[in-house]
Design a protein around this nucleic acid. Sequence first.
DNA 1: CGTCATTTGTCCGTATGTATA
DNA 2: CTATACATACGGACAAATGAC
Lengths: 243, 243
Amino acid sequence: MSKYKKVYHDIKAKISNGTLVAKQELPSESELMQHYGFSKDTIRKALSLLEINGYIQKQQGRNSIVLERHLPKPQILSEIKTVSELNHSSSHQVKTTLSSLYIVQGEEELMHIFNVNEQIDFYRIGRTREIDGERVEYEVSYFDRRIVPFINRDIAEQSIYHYLESELGLKISHSQREIVFRYANEEEENTLDLGEYNMIVSVTSTTYLADGRPFQYGSISYRPDKITFASTATREIKHSSTN
Amino acid sequence: MSKYKKVYHDIKAKISNGTLVAKQELPSESELMQHYGFSKDTIRKALSLLEINGYIQKQQGRNSIVLERHLPKPQILSEIKTVSELNHSSSHQVKTTLSSLYIVQGEEELMHIFNVNEQIDFYRIGRTREIDGERVEYEVSYFDRRIVPFINRDIAEQSIYHYLESELGLKISHSQREIVFRYANEEEENTLDLGEYNMIVSVTSTTYLADGRPFQYGSISYRPDKITFASTATREIKHSSTN
DNA sequence: CGTCATTTGTCCGTATGTATA
DNA sequence: CTATACATACGGACAAATGAC
């Protein structure tokens, strides 16, 4: 791991475990340089990362300060996390069930998003997520078969992302998402335990590889009481960097 | 303006006006260095900014590529925008009405968030937003009077943020937000034109000054069909840096 | 399959500007 | 006004990934 990431993880850990407390000042950049034995550039990259991810607040002319930690419960919108990754931190019983897996061709929406003709086919995967025995999430996902030529039941029931990254060696880069709140359609009413609710939260996403090609499109429908989003917003464009 | 911000805005403009098109490659860093006559560090900061804000995609070993532009409609979650700023880009008729303005003391939730006792008082401002004649947003906002000692009707009906930044000279830094989906309460049913809906989208936020002090807490309730959120997520922590 | 030129990523040292206290 | 601390900028060295051969 690079030096600036080591410093980032080190300070982040100190904030998480309470060694550094909210509103407290961090050591100055020059003190951190001495402490870690790294250059100014390296320390500054680590601090910028901490700021972007909402752990600290920098201000010219004074030491950085530690921010209050946002609640651990809600989904952080700036991270792509898979279900199994999310489950690590959860004390609830989560079960993923594959409800459908087949190949489709010529769907208008897909052809438009992937900018392809009706010759190209896609895996269509439907999955339901049960949390503590209630079906509260329903996911429909499409994968471009030119990039993901093979998926079976096993893979679809386990972690698809792990398969893509480890087995196929794909480099997943980023994802564009849109969140809407709308009435549930028939499919969602059938596959989810909506109870009294007649609306769902729908998160639609397109995911891209490091080389810029889109390879996945889909949406996840949530029962409204089972989802919360968190985000940190800044007043100006956030400085940034050297990568 | 600093050099790296100039480069950032220049390339951003070229992407926005179509001089640079999606999937196209940017010039290499060394070519950009020559073109602008700036150092590698400066060019790299600009490119990192463009990547963080979702305009380009970087990958080690090859030139950066231009990403598809996300739709301009939805709210971008990583920016703090005031109503009047949002209205610039909109072709709709927007009207903000002040529905209440008074001072409160000793509210449990506020005392907890601002970590103060019941001696401290807050402005409580209720505002309704009409879009094309329909009341679709209702905002309740609290301001710490030690930081914002005076607000009147005029200010509350115009832009509060402009007043805080220009008149009071406050430096607004960042904001933590949480989005939940729930049934409308009585106040929301009365102040909003909810029509057939009985649920709302609620965005709760705490806003901080550059020195880390929280000065504002509040929530905005939206009619479900009038709000969409957009965000870009990354698979790994986003590098960053040198500020 | 390795080789090699190109390109980006990391790290360092230094100088100067600007905000804070 | 001054000392301190962060912000911007430059130039150079080496590492790592990519693509073409």
